[in-house]
Design a protein around this nucleic acid. Structure first.
Length: 421
DNA sequence: TCTCCGATTAGAC
DNA sequence: CTAACGGTCTAATCGGAGA
């Protein structure tokens, strides 16, 4: 039985690469993209990495280095990245009928049975580059975990020219390679587990692969055992060709400035309800548990802290934003205590069930998956832009909105923002 | 003592 | 000048409540 040739295709520095598509002048310049609220660095060009900017680092901490070396920081532009991602994924689909979109910038592609795999892998890189302008690396292995690891090698070693296939190595070569990779590079092993593994003398991927499994399982549980088996080439994590429906849907945001008025908080919450319920309806779901939470600024140890939240079980599953919003607004009044500077709030829709072919409640008015009013609302907002029709408590002031002072134009999704049109 | 369930932890990106 | 630190999601595990 031949081993699986599973590829992980990962876009290089994805958000930065998207920005560069429309700003070729940024090639070879240090560039970073910031998270919401211009808070943390979430994507770095190679030049920015070389200057020591860390993934997830708060931007204000980088300011000094940034000014010294002229690093350009951009606010994140998610509609742009989603659009480019879709293009990349469409091209990838032409290489294999079996694939899984793993994240906005990563895709597993089953290339088993592909003739001339080496050449095809390089061709894949070329074509994605030519058709979308996004540079990618390809890692190939016999399991997802090994494909991920191969991708790490492809990214790390320039000599690979962006493609690395672990299946091409002899056992001897493989062991030598794995003995040089820190265990923290393995998919599923983060900083906490790295440290605990290290205490047991497991520092490299090879040591994890060859560790005593029962001991490993006893100390770390089934997840680590699976990871070990995957490193040994036994597939334990299946390719998920269709994305499963969400089990919970969250909408939350840090505010651009501290919120000290209930009305402003309520305005924000109504927007969160609109966003979350739209997602819920797009998967034909209904929720019967709504959670609401607020929070002061956890980083301000000098200020009084308050992080309340409450869960509201609904009498019957629904996807009606008006109904859900009434509960959320009520919750806000319960949770609100004056005198605090609120920095963040959010809602979470849980206990999600499918409105399709599921049995419905005796007391539900209609068997229709989504009420006609909600359908109309979604259509209008899709057609004319998000927020065209909004909840009545969603005021027009938006005094809570996040800061995004460095945003690039919506090149691909808004004609008005294209230069020279 | 067992089972269930909500909260917590750890991870990914 | 000062203050300036993301958002969504899943699975496993923990620990208390109630049977």
């Amino acid at each position: 039985m031949l081993v699986q040739q599973l590829a992980l295709v990962d876009c290089n520095n994805f958000y930065v690469s998207c920005e560069r598509l429309f700003r070729p002048d940024l090639t070879n310049c240090p560039v970073v993209v910031l998270s919401n609220n211009d808070g943390c660095v979430v994507s770095r060009s190679n030049e920015a990495k070389a200057l020591g900017i860390k993934m997830g680092q708060p931007w204000f901490e980088c300011k000094a280095v940034a000014e010294q070396h002229g690093i350009l920081a951009l606010s994140s532009n998610y509609p742009l990245y989603a659009d480019i991602s879709n293009r990349v994924m469409s091209v990838l689909r032409t290489f294999s009928p079996r694939s899984e979109i793993y994240s906005i910038d990563e895709c597993f592609v089953d290339l088993s049975g592909t003739p001339n795999l080496r050449a095809q892998s390089y061709a894949l890189r070329e074509i994605i580059g030519k058709w979308t302008g996004i540079p990618v690396c390809v890692g190939i292995g016999s399991t997802k975990t090994l494909a991920k690891l191969a991708n790490y090698v492809a990214k790390k070693h320039p000599r690979s020219r962006g493609v690395f296939n672990l299946n091409d190595l002899s056992e001897e070569q493989l062991r030598r390679l794995l003995s040089q990779i820190p265990v923290g590079e393995v998919w599923g092993v983060g900083s906490k587990l790295s440290r605990r593994l290290s205490e047991l003398g497991i520092d490299t991927v090879l040591e994890l692969r060859e560790a005593h499994s029962p001991t490993l399982r006893a100390a770390f549980g089934v997840v680590m055992e699976r990871t070990q088996r995957e490193l040994l080439g036994q597939p334990c994590i299946e390719l998920e060709q269709v994305a499963p429906d969400k089990q919970q849907i969250m909408s939350s945001r840090s505010f651009g400035r501290p919120v000290t008025e209930l009305a402003i908080l309520q305005d924000a919450l109504s927007v969160f309800v609109a966003n979350a319920t739209e997602k819920l309806r797009s998967q034909n779901g209904k929720t019967s548990l709504v959670q609401v939470f607020l929070s002061t600024d956890r980083f301000r140890k000098d200020l009084p802290q308050y992080h309340p939240g409450m869960a509201i079980p609904l009498p019957s599953p629904t996807s009606d934003s008006l109904l859900i919003n009434r509960w959320v607004q009520q919750a806000a009044q319960w949770l609100w205590r004056p005198g605090y500077r609120y920095k963040k709030a959010g809602i979470l829709l849980g206990a999600i069930t499918s409105a399709l072919n599921g049995q419905h409640d005796l007391f539900e008015e209609s068997a229709s998956p989504v009420s006609p009013l909600m359908q109309t609302l979604d259509r209008l907002n899709t057609r004319f832009g998000r927020g065209t029709v909004r909840l009545s408590s969603a005021g027009l002031t938006r005094q809570w909105e996040m800061r995004q002072e460095r945003k690039s134009p919506a090149y691909t999704t808004d004609w008005d923002q294209l230069p020279g049109v």
